[in-house]
């Protein structure tokens, strides 16, 4: 299943998006730049606040950890110097997660949600029109129990029966922006995963050529992120056609 992106589901937030992968659905809302509390104020750049709400219950240490990972990533993506002494507030709500019947080891589950959170937060930041330095795409991959074979964008079964989980984020230049792993793995396996995820990330934002139909015909995956974002931009400019 290819990831899905819905643009601007919330009209009251400055920017919002929902992102669906085979494992998770995330609703992201972004407000900013807004007034920042004096104690969080930074004189030279915008403060970034990330709030993650789990599917059920209230957040705990797990959510605090995810928030810290995400805030660090967003700081490298947002142009924080453009709006000093302000706040960029990102709120992420997990709407769907793997059903409780599938037993996933704690640390593996924590890492698995990261790519979905990153992609949702990025899409919402784009929707909010915040100044961004680069485009980021995150991907998830697992190494199978036998230690060989990498599964990209795994389903619940593959996640439950895996040896290690890897979440990585890349920008358009192929630079690694996010790297979190869980489980047991060796350097060789990590390198395999790195190569595979780098390729999938590049595909997700690959420029759409004129031979688009031909590309999709022979089974190459579509650049889903670019297509979703360009679709939004076209829709936004649609009034020009009739006006």
């Amino acid at each position: 299943m290819s990831p899905e992106l819905t643009n601007h589901p919330l009209i009251r937030a400055d920017g919002s998006a929902t992102h669906t992968t085979s494992l998770f659905t995330i609703l992201a809302a972004v407000n900013g730049p807004i007034e920042v509390q004096r104690r969080d104020e930074l004189p030279e750049e915008a403060a970034i606040e990330v709030n993650i709400r789990p599917c059920a219950g209230i957040g705990g240490p797990r959510e605090r950890w995810l928030e810290s990972v995400l805030a660090a990533l967003l700081k490298s993506v947002l142009l924080v110097h453009a709006h000093p002494r302000t706040l960029m507030q990102v709120t992420l709500q997990v709407l769907k997660e793997p059903s409780s019947g599938v037993r996933v080891r704690r640390r593996l589950g924590d890492v698995a949600v990261l790519p979905a959170l990153v992609n949702a937060a990025f899409a919402a930041c784009v929707d909010a029109g915040l100044p961004l330095g680069r485009t980021v795409v995150a991907g998830l991959a697992v190494v199978r129990e036998d230690g060989d074979g990498v599964v990209v964008d795994p389903d619940e079964k593959a996640l439950a029966g895996c040896r290690s989980v890897h979440a990585m984020g890349f920008d358009a230049q192929g630079e690694l922006l996010l790297n979190e792993s869980g489980g047991q793995f060796e350097l060789r396996q990590w390198q395999d995963v790195f190569e595979v995820l780098k390729t999938t990330a590049a595909v997700a934002i690959a420029p759409t050529g004129e031979d688009e139909a031909m590309m999709n015909g022979d089974g190459t995956p579509a650049p889903w992120l670019r297509q979703a974002l360009e679709g939004n931009a076209r829709e936004a400019g649609a009034w020009r056609g009739v006006g």
């Binding site: 961004l132 330095g133 485009t135 934002i205 076209r234």
Partner: peptide, 11 residues
């Protein structure tokens, strides 16, 4: 108007 669409960070 054939407008080109840019993603953040593109030149």
């Amino acid at each position: 108007m054939a407008s080109t669409i840019f993603l953040p960070g593109e030149q």
